[in-house]
Each structure stands twice: as structure tokens, then as C-alpha cells.
């Protein structure tokens, strides 16, 4: 059985995701060198998340062409991201590796930077389970 949930508005999500990250004990404990910028392409919206020392410094919403630089991109359909936003995601929507191997997610750009930050980034993406996804 699936429970219908309303996706949060973009503005509400930017605030809740930033707060969830910046207060997360795991990221606070291990994020000293978690510094990078990445694109979240959710089909209906795109976001550039800029992280400095584990803190989300800025989330740019629907940036224009070449407006906000980023190092790597995580792209998937709105459907995939909405599945990521459920408290207990269904199989293959439970992480960026799973969805990349088995669904429509793509990891692009400088994937080395993604790998260098993989521990905290994995946790950060899982915060969608509590904030929901804005698509």
C-alpha cells in the first residue's frame, strides 16, 4: 500500500533540507572536509547545493544556464526523486548507487569529487526521507 503524500513546496524544502543537514549529528561529526557543489536534477526543478565544511551554505533553485557552477550532477526523474522522499523507500529507490544501477539515475561530472565526499553525501541524500522531495 502506498500512502499519498504531498510534496513539500520548493521554498519549504530548501529550508527543511538545509536545517536537517546543518543539525545532523552524523554530518556534524564527520563533515569537517565535506566541501563541494553539486547539481540535483529532479526534472521538475534543479538545485545546486553548495556545501562548506559539512554545512549547506546555499541551495540555488532552478539556476539559469551557466549561472551557478557545480562539480558533479545527480540526475533522475521526478518520479525517482519522489520515491527517494518516502520514509522507507521501495527497493532500488533507497540510494544513489541502487537507483543508478537499476533505475534512471545518472551520476555525471567530476565523479571523483562525489567519491571523495561519499560518506557524508550518502547521509545528506538520505535526509530526503525525512524532508520529502520537492517534486
Amino acid at each position: 500500500m502506498t500512502v499519498a503524500t504531498r510534496a513539500p513546496s520548493v521554498d519549504a524544502w530548501v529550508q527543511s533540507f538545509t536545517e536537517a543537514n546543518n543539525q545532523d549529528p552524523e554530518i556534524r561529526a564527520h563533515g569537517k572536509y565535506f566541501t563541494c557543489s553539486y547539481l540535483l536534477d529532479m526534472e521538475a526543478h534543479t538545485f545546486v547545493v553548495r556545501v562548506v565544511s559539512g554545512t549547506i551554505a546555499q541551495i540555488s533553485v532552478d539556476p539559469g544556464p551557466i549561472e551557478v557552477p557545480y562539480q558533479f550532477a545527480i540526475r533522475a526523474s521526478a518520479h525517482t526523486w519522489s520515491e527517494f522522499g518516502k520514509p522507507v523507500p521501495a527497493p532500488m529507490y533507497h540510494g544513489i548507487w541502487a537507483a543508478t544501477f537499476q533505475r534512471d539515475m545518472k551520476l555525471e561530472g567530476d565523479v571523483l569529487v562525489l567519491m571523495q565526499n561519499l560518506r557524508c553525501l550518502t547521509r545528506q541524500i538520505e535526509l530526503l526521507r525525512s524532508t520529502g522531495a520537492p517534486v
Binding site: V88, P89, P91, H94, G95, I96, W97, A98, M115, L118, R119, T122, R129
Partner: peptide, 9 residues
């Protein structure tokens, strides 16, 4: 962390 997603939530 690369094998983390191999586990169930």
C-alpha cells in the same frame, strides 16, 4: 559507503 545502498533501510 559505496556498499551502503546494498542494505535495506
Amino acid at each position: 559507503s559505496g556498499t551502503w545502498d546494498l542494505m535495506a533501510p
